[in-house]
Write a protein that binds this DNA or RNA. Sequence first.
RNA 1: GCCCGGGUGGCGGAAUUGGUAUACGCGCACGACUUAAAAUCGUGUCUUGAAAGAGAUGAGGGUUCGAUUCCCUCCCCGGGCACCA
Length: 930
Amino acid sequence: MGIYDHKKIEKKWQKQWERDGLYKACEDQRKEKCYVLDMFPYPSGDGLHVGHPKGYIATDIYSRFKKMSGFNILHPMGWDAFGLPAENFAIKNKVHPRVAVKKNIKRFKEQLRGIGFNYDWEREINTTDPKYYRWTQWVFLKMFEKGLAYESHEPINWCPSCQTGLANEDLDGNACERCGTIVEKRLMRQWILKITAYADRLLRDLDSLHWPESIKTSQRNWIGRSEGTEIDFKLVDVPGQKDGAHSVKVFTTRSDTLFGATFLAISAELAWKWIENGWQVDVEIKEYVEKTIAENAKRSFKEKEKTGIFSGVSAINPAHQEKIPVWIVNYVLGDVGTGAVMAVPAHDERDFEFAKKYQLPIRQVVAEKNVDIMGVGALIETKEGNFVFQKRGGNASTHPNTIALFGGGIEKNEDVFACVRRELEEELSLKLEMYHEINVIGDFESHNQPERYLKAFHVRNVDRNILELREGEAIVEMTLDDAEKNSHVTDFTKDVIRAFRNGINSAFVSPGILINSGKFDGMTSSEANDAITKFVGEKKTVVYKLRDWVFSRQRYWGEPIPIIHCEQCGIVPVPESDLPVMLPEVESYAPTGTGESPLADISEWVNVKCPKCSGQAKRETNTMPQWAGSSWYYLRYIDPRNESALVDKEKEKYWSPVDMYVGGAEHATRHLIYARFWHKFLYDIGVVNCAEPFARLEHVGLIAAEDGRKMSKRYGNVVNPDDIVATYGADTLRLYEMFMGPFDQGVRWSTDSIVGSRRFIERVWKLQEKISDDDEQSIEMAIHTTIKKVGGDIEQFGFNTAIAQMMILVNEMERVDSIGRRQYEILLTVLAPFAPYVVEDIWNGALGHLSSIHEESWPSYNEERMRATNVVITVQINGKVRDHFSMPADSSGEKVESEALAREGVQKWIAGKEIKRVIYVKNKIVSIVI
RNA sequence: GCCCGGGUGGCGGAAUUGGUAUACGCGCACGACUUAAAAUCGUGUCUUGAAAGAGAUGAGGGUUCGAUUCCCUCCCCGGGCACCA
């Protein structure tokens, strides 16, 4: 048998497979295809750490399994090599980024090869290859042609450290995602892609995708659809203008609260536009507007104090024609909606805060429908001498219109009523006034303090200031004023009344029943939303949070944007025949910081003839963002060397869409949105035949370092896969990474635990000794179970449980004296996707096969053979496990029940008791109720 | 604050149309082999209890013959979004 020498084995088969071209993909129309894709890496100078291959191992296993299941596989790999790290490295070390990238790719490839991946390297791509980025530029031209790429001069996010403009997607809060610097707003010329034109489809088509729900939710939030109404407010008191000559539009999702709009709040940016259009204002106002715009540019709005200034202008609320003031405020964003909102302090927290501060009127127009506030239960004294409030029954907290009042514990020695007061202050005093009708029921008693018995009471119709006090069956009605003076009313009840009278302390933002809204009173919020929209003569519209994609970067290492600026003709696209626009050589890669890229300095590249009029013209010097090349790369693998088209139509039709896509969840609102957008565009212009690029997505949980931190050179906690492969072998590394835990969950690396996977492989290796000509019948059930379980688990990405099942099978095989050759081959075959080297070596060595095990078919299983002849029946008495016994499988219920009742271990419990019920769960449980 | 996940032995984790909680692996303890150690193999390993038993899946409650699984209230951890009107 020889010893298991992973180094020798892995080297040998790696060469052999490459020589045989085992993993070459071709368009085999007879077979069903399966396109399995990894998010291609950015080849950094640090090389791979053990966290990187986790996703690649999964796709490798998946694609090998699908191949064995009869599918034609496409499983390629490539390099996303444009971007800042290579450029920064180049600036620092004075090497061309191209040189650094080439070197890094070589190293990455060697590392990946060592782990035994089945990539088809003939389809390798590189986004920085002019033959590749020619097509990235081509897509841009097509977008320009369709009006989806446009030049703009709006203020955008600017990273002062990276010295480039950024898209919203490149931010982490208000900081640059790349370097952590707080970004600024900067007015500059830029290229924009109109992704918002696809917002609706990007949202809608998510439903059809087999993706993790979390990623779909992230995208939904990012796109941020809200349905509402644009309402027109006529302006009055505008200096030098007739009343009603001007108006302002606001966007709201809560038309039902229109009657409660007591002022208008407009952004400083909108106010500035008014000033530019000739609005005459005081110096004070103008200064406020300028100051606020400057503050907004810093984007430091977090926890910012709300400020505002009365504009002097008023507006007419179209609901009731009352005059309301227009305030210029810092909490309304200029680039959201219309830049103006109707402020409804009673029902919006921000408007509420602002109205309180500037003493603007608060008018409640929505009320909660009949709510009971209850505290029902008993006070229990614990062993330790503390009092704990125990709720009695379930209805106190489960009734839909009920707020649980007394759920908390009572501090040691704390007065019961002090506890109640505390609860009131913390929870209720804030909200009480908002309820249309309130019942407060405190039925409160204590075991060991029976004298402290709190009478039930009941408050209703707060609007009318009437208190209904219920004592036993009798109900006494009195006004709140009278109640407060009445000596029969307990202090507790008086506390409740005071809480009512404290006034509104927060906004009531939930939907409810309309009040103070004329003929709309009594409607629900959703009914009123439609009715009031109609009443003021408006229609529903939709807005999105998604912003258009800022697509230009003022940096060197990216695809040049294929545009020419002509003095005569203006913006002229580079003709398709002139593509690619090659990225020129420069002396300095450093960013200029001027809003132009380093390309601007190369006059022989910049100065060109206009393709239209042949006059003086200049090239666009901005480059594309890193996300450009990755927005369509999966299409290029299908047809990587095509020079006349982005992808061949027939080939695309065969391979598209990607069947399985695996990568990190951090791309949820970046790459995965951009790629979907580009794909939909390519679908619209007929380049691709399906509306979505990635039919199924699985996300890989990150591997943290042993110390729990991120694996990074900086912390010195990086584990290099090369070392693990050298010490334990690639098969062990692969098995271990898949066995660590659920695939999509983050885990900590643990070098100590690897031995388990290594031992497993050695056990499989040793089983060679046990091969005989005859099958061992006692392990047949385990074999069939394993075939089914492993296949099913791979399909669902449950690799850890698949491996556990194979371990169970190996344990069984070790327990018996010999195993059939056929049985051992089945074990090797199901293990093949996980540990491709060792199984191939045994297959070709000890078993003497001439062809590769990776050309084998996935074994089939027989459900019949998975069924046990005898089953263990569990006896439960009143829900507790009391006994077990064995019975032939599928015995009749009567037989099993009588057997159960006759057993000594059961009789012990049921002797002399009445048996109320016996429940039999087939082949599992007899449950006896006494 | 809102929206997604998640909370199970010493550790990674298994088990969901409600049916024997802790599979599989790591670690640990003891034993065999060895002059010895490593490796390997075997046995044991949730807590408590002498035992019978009792208790335990973040906490509390509910539904059920039976709940890690379903419902309610709450706590904690991870992630996403966040003056988005």
